[in-house]
Structures are given as structure tokens and as C-alpha cells.
Deep mutational scan, measured.
Amino acid sequence: MATGGRRGAAAAPLLVAVAALLLGAAGHLYPGEVCPGMDIRNNLTRLHELENCSVIEGHLQILLMFKTRPEDFRDLSFPKLIMITDYLLLFRVYGLESLKDLFPNLTVIRGSRLFFNYALVIFEMVHLKELGLYNLMNITRGSVRIEKNNELCYLATIDWSRILDSVEDNYIVLNKDDNEECGDICPGTAKGKTNCPATVINGQFVERCWTHSHCQKVCPTICKSHGCTAEGLCCHSECLGNCSQPDDPTKCVACRNFYLDGRCVETCPPPYYHFQDWRCVNFSFCQDLHHKCKNSRRQGCHQYVIHNNKCIPECPSGYTMNSSNLLCTPCLGPCPKVCHLLEGEKTIDSVTSAQELRGCTVINGSLIINIRGGNNLAAELEANLGLIEEISGYLKIRRSYALVSLSFFRKLRLIRGETLEIGNYSFYALDNQNLRQLWDWSKHNLTITQGKLFFHYNPKLCLSEIHKMEEVSGTKGRQERNDIALKTNGDQASCENELLKFSYIRTSFDKI
């Protein structure tokens, strides 16, 4: 039985969820670079991206490699990797027998973001014989899940209580170790020597080791999670996991709180800001991140802002960003909400898709409305799209047979046209069989910064309504002859009103 693990408890099935942008060198404390989270699957090609990484700022997932063999891993080693800020997950990587050479110096898994409450997941690794993470000293947050690894031993010899604050939620089941077939031998045991430290858990006094050649490092209890030197002297209180010299914040392997210019500090002093819960960055760093993602459509890219001495992905609820200094300031009234469309555009074809934009005031991208039916549609669209004030790209209304009016965009005031449909149009209306009105132009103002209007096959939309939009939106004169079809717009509506004058002759039985 794995020490510190839980057996036999019912657990939810383990679901495996399925960018080499360097964020800056980590400095003297770390020998390499800070790398983003990685999802490495199918083959070993991307694994080489770990070569210079000291910190993975995010998670590391290595999974679904069915053609790899043990010899493929023999020359692979990433000794610079010290810390993973989120979680480490391995799933069905064939041929991998140990992690001792792959990650010989991995010391800390912070667990800032977890995989279903777990910071370390080893699942269905069919050839893994031992973990071998002999320098792993601290899992700051989260638990361990090690399950269905039929060859995995050296679990009962690990004292997880020396690595985690609590072992109650560890789930370590259905491994070879369960069948008591392992016969784990710690260093020196074969020669009758006791080389590794022994600890007591559940009444068992057991030597602690990761492999037959690597003991588990056990520091004096007084050192807590700070770690200790090879001689057993406690590291500085700002260290986490390990250090090369005692009581020196510049000799830590990793930091308990924050890293700044080669030393570990309790908090980031001005003019620095907390970033990702582990390091200090200056304003320029946060500003660069903001600008890199301002026009990016890459998933996970955030326009970072500053709030409460932190550089964070977005302002919290009730705050909006001051564009001059990136500071989050309290909103006066309802907060603006910028919604970034991942692929640059979004099609609204149902109430469900409209709900995804609920509360958005600025759309960074283009909207395509293609709704053919739905219950209580006008009210639903207004509830979900009615706060949109600005669209950076274009607005396209296409084959939306259920629409009679666009009044559900009740606050839309600006279409920038930074991206144009077919390279020309910022407003595009095609084949809307029941569209009769755009907006009530006596109450609604709309500016279209650039781009043209396109109207074709809107049989109940009168040309007068379209011409009014040209005047109000500032697009009059931009359109070419064929942009607004004269014969297919309003051709099934009563669009022309003329005053009919009647004269009559009164007659009676005795007068003409």
C-alpha cells in the first residue's frame, strides 16, 4: 500500500482533458527560462521544448504516446526543470519506465491550478516501474492521483506527508504495488545497510526511497516546507523545498512566496507586481503582455491589467481597466465587458449561442446573426445582446428569417469595421425574408467608422429604411451602385405612401 494514499474509496472516473512563447529569463536562482504550460502528445517531438525550461508557468501534460519505446527515452533528460506552477499529468506514455532521468531536479509542483483537485496525476502508464522524482520536495496545493499503472512499484516507500501538507485526498490505487509483488529495495538494503531515512506512518517504520538508488530526502521537522541542505541544516524561511546553503534567500532552489532578481522575498516591493503567484514583474512586463494579447485571437491570451499590486489576466467583477495605466478602477454604474472572439468572429444561430455573449459591452471581433427560429426570440436576444455598444469588426445579418427588427441591439452605437466582410463591408444584410426595420432612427444613433453597407434580398425592408441608415451611420456616399439592390429590397412591402385627393359631386333626387 502506498504510504499516505487512500484505498478502496469510491472515486469519480478520471477524465483526461485534452506555445513556446518565453516569458522571460528567471535569473540567477533558476538555471534556465520560464516556459508556458505545455500539452505534449502523440510523439516526442515537442518534448524537446523543455530543454531550457527551469519553470513551467502553467501545467505540463505528457500523454497518448503509443509508439514510443524505452530506448526512445534513454537520452532524454531535462535537468534544468525545477518547478511547475500548476500540475504534472502523465497518461498512456508507452515505453517510459521512470522519471528519474527525465526530470531529475523537479523540486516543486505548486498546484496553482489543479487537474480535478490533483497536482500530480500518473494514470495508465503501462510501462512505468517507478516514479523516480527523487528531488520532489513540495506539492504546495492539491493532491496526488496514481492509478492503474500495472508495473509501478516504489510507492509504499514514499512518505507523501513530507511532500504535501495533507495526504487525506491522495488516491493511489490499482498499481502493481497493490499486489505486494514489488519487493522494493532501498539503497544499501541488499548489503544489509540502512542508507535512507525511515519514518513512521500508520504504525509502520519504513525506509523512504524513490528507487533502488535514490533515497527520499527527509528534512528535520523544524525546517517545515522550506527544505534543508545535504547536511540537514534548514533553508531560509522564504525558500521552498530545498537550498544549497542554509538561511540564505539567494540560495533557495525555489521560493515559498515570490522570486525577485535572484532572491526569494515575502512580497513584491514597489515598483514590482505579483505575477502568477510566484514571481515579481515590473510595469513594462505587464504592459507588454497586455499589448501582445490586445489584437491576438490565441486562446488563453489575456490583456493583463494591474489590481491590488498584482498583474492579473482581467479586472475583477465591479472594476474596469483604465487604459492609460492598466489599473483596475471601480465602475460607475454597470461595468464594461470586452469579449474577445477566439477566431475573430462568432455566429449567433440560437439563443444558446447568444447567451455566451451575455453582459458583453464591447465585441472584439465580428458578429454573424443567422437565426431561423426560436421561442420568445426578441426578448431572449435583447437579454443577451442588448448591452453590446461596440463591435470592432463587422455585423452580418444573414438568412435570419425569424427577425423582424434589429432593435434587440438596443445599445449598439459603434461598428468600427477594423475587419470587413469580403474585404469591403462593415454591415452586411443578406436574404432576411421578414426583416422590416433596422432601428427606430428617431431614437437610435449608430456610427460606422469604416467599410460599406450591403443589402440584398431583404424583400420587406424598404429602401427608405436603408437610406436612413446611410445618413445616420455616416456611410452615405461610400456605397457603390450594386451594394444596395434596388429590386430585391422592399419588393414585397408597401414602401411608397402617396396622399390621394378626392373630389365629389353631391346629387339628390331633384338636383344634379
Rank of each mutant, 00 (worst) to 15 (best):
residue 74 R to L: 02
residue 125 M to D: 05
residue 112 S to W: 10
residue 245 Q to K: 08
residue 92 R to F: 06
residue 119 A to G: 07
residue 68 T to G: 08
residue 115 F to C: 05
residue 77 S to A: 02
residue 37 G to P: 06
residue 329 T to V: 08
residue 276 Q to P: 02
residue 229 T to V: 06
residue 47 L to W: 02
residue 144 V to L: 08
residue 171 Y to F: 10
residue 264 C to F: 01
residue 122 I to D: 01
residue 79 P to R: 06
residue 29 L to E: 13
residue 40 I to T: 04
residue 236 H to L: 01
residue 169 D to A: 06
residue 208 R to P: 14
residue 130 E to P: 01
residue 202 N to A: 08
residue 336 P to L: 07
residue 243 C to H: 00
residue 195 N to S: 09
residue 194 T to C: 02
residue 42 N to Y: 12
residue 120 L to R: 01
residue 142 G to L: 02
residue 293 C to L: 04
residue 192 G to R: 08
residue 263 R to K: 09
residue 257 N to P: 00
residue 77 S to H: 03
residue 153 C to N: 02
residue 273 Y to W: 10
residue 269 P to M: 11
residue 313 P to R: 07
residue 280 C to H: 00
residue 59 H to E: 04
residue 28 H to E: 07
residue 191 K to R: 09
residue 157 T to P: 08
residue 139 I to S: 01
residue 225 S to E: 03
residue 59 H to C: 12
residue 34 V to P: 07
residue 232 G to H: 06
residue 53 C to D: 00
residue 205 F to Q: 10
residue 204 Q to W: 03
residue 273 Y to S: 05
residue 240 L to H: 14
residue 140 T to D: 12
residue 140 T to P: 07
residue 201 I to L: 13
residue 315 C to E: 03
residue 219 C to H: 08
residue 106 L to V: 02
residue 119 A to E: 00
residue 202 N to T: 11
residue 273 Y to G: 02
residue 82 I to L: 08
residue 97 E to S: 07
residue 180 E to H: 00
residue 147 E to A: 13
residue 258 F to N: 02
residue 155 L to T: 14
residue 326 L to E: 14
residue 331 C to N: 10
residue 247 D to F: 07
residue 250 T to M: 08
residue 287 Q to N: 08
residue 307 H to N: 04
residue 188 G to N: 04
residue 329 T to H: 05
residue 75 D to L: 09
residue 78 F to A: 04
residue 44 L to T: 12
residue 66 F to N: 01
residue 305 V to K: 10
residue 144 V to Q: 01
residue 240 L to Y: 13
residue 269 P to T: 14
residue 290 H to S: 07
residue 166 S to V: 12
residue 51 E to C: 15
residue 157 T to E: 14
residue 210 W to I: 14
residue 81 L to R: 00
residue 298 R to G: 12
residue 224 K to D: 11
residue 168 E to S: 15
residue 98 S to H: 03
residue 299 Q to R: 13
residue 218 V to W: 08
residue 174 L to K: 14
residue 31 P to L: 11
residue 73 F to V: 05
residue 334 P to F: 09
residue 42 N to W: 08
residue 282 N to C: 02
residue 228 C to S: 03
residue 211 T to G: 01
residue 302 H to S: 11
residue 138 N to M: 13
residue 89 L to K: 01
residue 297 R to M: 09
residue 229 T to L: 12
residue 80 K to Y: 04
residue 41 R to T: 14
residue 42 N to L: 07
residue 327 L to T: 07
residue 315 C to T: 03
residue 228 C to K: 03
residue 204 Q to M: 09
residue 195 N to R: 09
residue 84 I to G: 00
residue 76 L to K: 15
residue 286 C to L: 03
residue 126 V to I: 06
residue 226 H to M: 09
residue 165 D to V: 11
residue 306 I to Q: 04
residue 173 V to T: 04
residue 195 N to A: 11
residue 103 F to V: 02
residue 241 G to M: 02
residue 328 C to V: 03
residue 236 H to N: 07
residue 200 V to T: 10
residue 233 L to S: 12
residue 47 L to S: 05
residue 150 N to G: 13
residue 212 H to N: 13
residue 246 P to Q: 15
residue 207 E to W: 14
residue 63 L to N: 01
residue 136 L to G: 00
residue 248 D to C: 02
residue 141 R to Y: 06
residue 106 L to G: 00
residue 225 S to G: 07
residue 171 Y to V: 13
residue 270 P to G: 09
residue 74 R to Q: 04
residue 44 L to R: 07
residue 128 L to Q: 05
residue 196 C to L: 13
residue 292 K to L: 12
residue 231 E to G: 15
residue 299 Q to T: 07
residue 46 R to P: 06
residue 235 C to V: 00
residue 126 V to G: 09
residue 317 S to L: 08
residue 152 L to S: 03
residue 172 I to F: 04
residue 43 N to V: 07
residue 180 E to Q: 14
residue 314 E to P: 08
residue 215 C to N: 14
residue 117 N to W: 07
residue 57 E to N: 10
residue 54 S to G: 01
residue 62 I to S: 00
residue 163 I to G: 01
residue 191 K to H: 05
residue 188 G to P: 09
residue 139 I to H: 01
residue 41 R to V: 08
residue 120 L to Q: 00
residue 265 V to H: 12
residue 294 K to M: 07
residue 100 K to R: 11
residue 223 C to A: 04
residue 173 V to Y: 03
residue 262 G to I: 02
residue 71 E to H: 15
residue 41 R to A: 14
residue 83 M to G: 02
residue 283 F to P: 09
residue 229 T to A: 05
residue 178 D to T: 11
residue 306 I to G: 08
residue 134 Y to M: 13
residue 213 S to Y: 07
residue 331 C to S: 03
residue 142 G to F: 01
residue 100 K to A: 07
residue 69 R to S: 05
residue 329 T to K: 03
residue 86 D to Q: 11
residue 260 L to V: 10
residue 121 V to C: 10
residue 189 T to G: 14
residue 213 S to R: 07
residue 138 N to Y: 14
residue 47 L to P: 03
residue 187 P to N: 14
residue 232 G to D: 15
residue 129 K to S: 09
residue 128 L to H: 01
residue 50 L to C: 01
residue 97 E to Q: 14
residue 157 T to A: 10
residue 235 C to G: 01
residue 266 E to K: 15
residue 45 T to P: 15
residue 232 G to L: 10
residue 301 C to F: 08
residue 255 C to S: 00
residue 58 G to N: 00
residue 203 G to K: 09
residue 269 P to L: 08
residue 238 E to S: 08
residue 82 I to G: 04
residue 83 M to Y: 03
residue 155 L to I: 11
residue 138 N to R: 15
residue 104 P to G: 01
residue 191 K to T: 15
residue 274 H to T: 14
residue 228 C to Y: 03
residue 259 Y to V: 06
residue 165 D to H: 07
residue 144 V to T: 04
residue 134 Y to T: 02
residue 30 Y to C: 09
residue 63 L to T: 08
residue 97 E to V: 12
residue 316 P to K: 03
residue 257 N to K: 07
residue 29 L to M: 10
residue 79 P to W: 14
residue 259 Y to R: 03
residue 236 H to S: 12
residue 189 T to P: 10
residue 137 M to F: 05
residue 66 F to R: 02
residue 277 D to R: 09
residue 154 Y to N: 08
residue 261 D to T: 15
residue 174 L to F: 05
residue 161 S to R: 10
residue 49 E to L: 09
residue 257 N to V: 01
residue 253 V to G: 07
residue 309 N to R: 11
residue 240 L to F: 04
residue 193 K to R: 15
residue 145 R to M: 06
residue 158 I to H: 07
residue 175 N to M: 06
residue 61 Q to S: 14
residue 188 G to W: 13
residue 39 D to A: 12
residue 287 Q to V: 05
residue 266 E to V: 12
residue 36 P to G: 15
residue 288 D to M: 14
residue 270 P to Q: 09
residue 215 C to E: 14
residue 125 M to Q: 05
residue 29 L to T: 14
residue 48 H to A: 05
residue 159 D to W: 15
residue 104 P to I: 01
residue 123 F to L: 13
residue 204 Q to G: 15
residue 240 L to M: 07
residue 165 D to A: 06
residue 60 L to G: 00
residue 320 T to S: 05
residue 72 D to S: 07
residue 235 C to W: 01
residue 276 Q to A: 09
residue 37 G to D: 12
residue 236 H to G: 06
residue 45 T to H: 09
residue 51 E to I: 15
residue 335 C to L: 04
residue 283 F to M: 08
residue 239 C to M: 00
residue 169 D to Y: 06
residue 283 F to R: 12
residue 143 S to K: 13
residue 46 R to C: 15
residue 227 G to A: 06
residue 278 W to I: 04
residue 147 E to F: 09
residue 287 Q to E: 15
residue 156 A to M: 09
